[in-house]
Amino acid sequence: MRKWKRVETRNGPRFRSSLAPHEAALLKNLVTAMIGLFDQRQSSSPSDELEEITGIRTGHSQRPGDPTLSRLLPDFYRPDDDNPLAIDDPESLNAALRSLHEPEVIDAKRGAAQRLLDTVPANGGRLELTEDTANAWITAVNDLRLTLGVMLEIGPEGPKRLPADNPMAVHFDVYQWLTVLQEYLVLVLMGRPQ
C-alpha cells in the first residue's frame, strides 16, 4: 500500500492511494467475512411482536457468545464501581439498550464495510475516496483490527511481536498492515504528513 495523498477538487477533498492485487484481495476477503458475522448475528435475533406492530426493529438482548462479535458489539454501559450513582442492574440496562440499538449499530458497521468493498479496486490499483468514504474505510478497517485483535489476544498494552514460526505470525503481520493503513488514512484526513 502506498501512502495516501489528499487532493483538493471542486467537489471537495479526495484521498488517493493504490493497493497491490494481493492487498485488495485480502481486504475483500476480510471484509466479506466480517459482514457475514454481522449478517449471522442480525438474522438470528428473536422475533418481536412489538416490532411487527410498530416496525421498530429490535435485536438480541444478550451479548454475543462469540468473542469476536462480543468485541465488535460491546456492552453499551459499563458500571463504574467508584460512582455512587451507578446503576444497580447493569445487565438489565445493557439488555434493553442492546435490544433497541444493536440493529442500528450493525447497520452502520455493515454499511461502512460495504462502502470499503465497493471502492476497493477489483484487482488492485489506484483508488480515490471522498471524505465520507474515507471515514467509512477507517471504521471498517478498525473493525477488522478489532476482529484480528481478538484472535491474536491483543490486550490494552498493545500487540507483541510473534516469532516467525508461530502459526499466528501471518495474522499479526496483517494486523500491523491494517494498523498502518488506518493510521495513514487518519493522518491524511487530518491534513498531517504521513
Rank of each mutant, 00 (worst) to 15 (best):
E102M: 11
R110I: 05
D75W: 06
T139Y: 03
A164P: 01
S92T: 12
L19R: 00
A24E: 03
Q62R: 14
I154G: 00
V186W: 05
V188K: 05
L178G: 01
T32E: 14
H22A: 11
P46V: 06
M151T: 15
D88K: 07
S17L: 07
D132R: 07
Q62P: 00
H171T: 05
T58G: 07
S70F: 11
V150F: 07
I138P: 01
A33H: 08
L85P: 01
D81V: 12
A20D: 06
Q194F: 13
Y175M: 00
D107C: 09
H60R: 15
I154V: 06
A20W: 07
A169L: 06
A24P: 01
M151S: 13
L127A: 02
R2T: 14
L144M: 14
N29E: 13
N11D: 14
H101I: 08
S45L: 08
L117S: 02
E153W: 01
V141Q: 02
R10S: 15
H22C: 04
T119I: 06
R14Q: 10
M190I: 03
Q62E: 15
G149V: 02
P167H: 10
V186R: 06
D173A: 13
L37R: 09
Q40V: 02
F38G: 05
R145F: 03
P163G: 01
A113T: 00
P13S: 08
D82T: 12
W4A: 09
V186I: 14
G155K: 11
L129D: 01
S47E: 14
D132Y: 04
R14E: 10
A164V: 08
R16F: 04
L27Q: 03
G55L: 12
R145P: 00
D80N: 15
W177Y: 09
S44G: 10
A86D: 12
E131A: 14
T68V: 15
